[in-house]
Amino acid sequence: MSDTTSPRVALVTGGSGGIGHAVVERLARDGFAVAVHYAGNKDRADDLVEAITADGGRAIAVGGDVADEQDMAAAFDAVEAAFGGIDVLVNTAGMMRLGPLVELDLDLLDRMHRTNIRGTFVVDQLAARRLRSGGAIINFSTSVTRAQFPNYGAYVASKAAVEAITLILARELRGRDITVNAVAPGPTATPLFLDGKDEATIDHLAKAVPLERLGRPEDIAESVAFLAGPARWVNGQVLFTNGGLA
């Protein structure tokens, strides 16, 4: 069991932008020492670390390709060296590219699935080996696995794989006192979601939600904070955080 007198430690992949940024800020406010992972935007990760430390928190930035096991092993090593161990992995890193199945470029399909499927598998495998007792693994799916919007086929296929990894790993970690869950956001106002969509499309998706707005990154961070902290009896689940989207 981890030392309860020390802060819990979280590694957030994709922590330099979008939902990951909000998750890092929320966990830092909750008292976690946080590792902000980035793939290409080191400056943004460093700025976030600087803001957290200026506010009295503990944070470091770690880089690497989530689908590269050597990169991510080095990232895990850096977090353990800085903070003494890891309690929570939040895997927000991902790609979303949309288009009809009949037209989608297969190279784009391969790149997206490498990040979303292999990347999740790599970081979950490392987390399963390294997280301390009492820990939590939190992956990211999408509510479109249920909403089934056209043009999302390749992306949803990758996230369905993430759900499968999540639900099976939860059962494989029997006896370890480590929970494994996924958060499935609905339409959320992030650069990843907004990129390439016109105003009419964005308004339509907002109105599809009974609360009649897009989600905010902070809304999604609330669910992550729940799973990372008090939700010790929630395990092997997909938490649809979507304002009631069918």
Rank of each mutant, 00 (worst) to 15 (best):
A147V: 04
A147R: 15
Q148L: 10
Q148K: 11
Q148P: 06
F149N: 07
F149C: 02
F149Y: 14
P150H: 06
N151I: 00
N151K: 03
N151L: 01
N151D: 07
Y152V: 00
Y152F: 09
Y152L: 01
Y152T: 06
G153M: 00
G153P: 04
G153K: 03
A154F: 05
A154N: 08
A154M: 04
V156R: 06
V156L: 02
V156H: 05
A157T: 13
S158G: 15
S158V: 02
S158R: 00
K159G: 02
K159W: 05
K159E: 01
A160L: 08
A161D: 12
V162M: 01
V162C: 01
E163K: 14
E163P: 15
E163L: 11
E163F: 12
A164R: 15
I165L: 07
I165D: 07
T166L: 00
T166F: 00
T166W: 00
T166Y: 01
L167G: 11
L167F: 02
L167C: 09
L167A: 10
L167T: 15
L167V: 13
I168G: 14
I168F: 10
I168Y: 14
L169I: 08
L169N: 13
A170I: 10
R171T: 10
R171C: 08
E172C: 05
L173S: 08
L173D: 10
L173H: 05
L173W: 06
L173C: 09
R174Q: 08
R174D: 09
R174F: 11
R174E: 08
R174H: 12
G175E: 04
R176I: 14
R176A: 10
R176W: 12
D177E: 15
D177W: 11
I178A: 04
I178Y: 07
T179I: 13
V180N: 09
V180T: 14
V180L: 05
N181A: 03
N181M: 06
A182W: 10
A182D: 02
A182E: 03
A182P: 14
A184K: 14
A184G: 08
A184F: 15
P185D: 00
P185S: 01
P185N: 03
G186A: 06
P187L: 14
P187N: 06
P187Q: 07
P187D: 02
T188H: 08
T188R: 09
A189C: 05
A189Y: 09
T190R: 14
T190S: 04
T190Y: 14
T190E: 03
T190A: 03
T190D: 02
P191F: 14
P191C: 08
P191G: 08
P191L: 11
P191S: 09
P191D: 03
P191V: 13
L192K: 13
L192C: 09
F193A: 02
L194E: 07
L194D: 04
L194W: 11
D195S: 15
G196M: 05
G196H: 13
G196E: 05
G196N: 12
K197C: 03
K197L: 12
K197M: 09
